[in-house]
Amino acid sequence: MAEEIHERKMTLLNRYGMHVRPAGLFAKIASRHDAAITVEKDGNSVSGKSIMALLTLEAVCGSVITVRAEGPDGEEALDDLEALVSRKFDLPDEQ
């Protein structure tokens, strides 16, 4: 049975974009969900549960990333990730 793929575009708003801290938080939240999560930018699609993979996207402040989640809790995963991204990863220096 093919799972439905949920998709959402998110804009990075924190000052330094996708660096180690945000990538770590993103991967951590993504890993809490069973859904397979990928993140795409500029045609490169990588695992949303891997810090190193997220860093290779070279996403900066203002970059739009496309997050896809495949699995029963996909929609929920996207909600959590979107909230994290829009809160600028709760990074005090980057608000």
């Binding site: 180690v20 891997s50 810090i51 190193m52 860093l55 290779t56 070279e58």
Partner: peptide, 14 residues
């Protein structure tokens, strides 16, 4: 190139 030869070890970090 940007992340070349860095590695994530779960429990330890990068």
């Amino acid at each position: 190139p940007l992340t070349r030869f860095y590695m994530e070890m779960r429990g330890l970090g990068i």
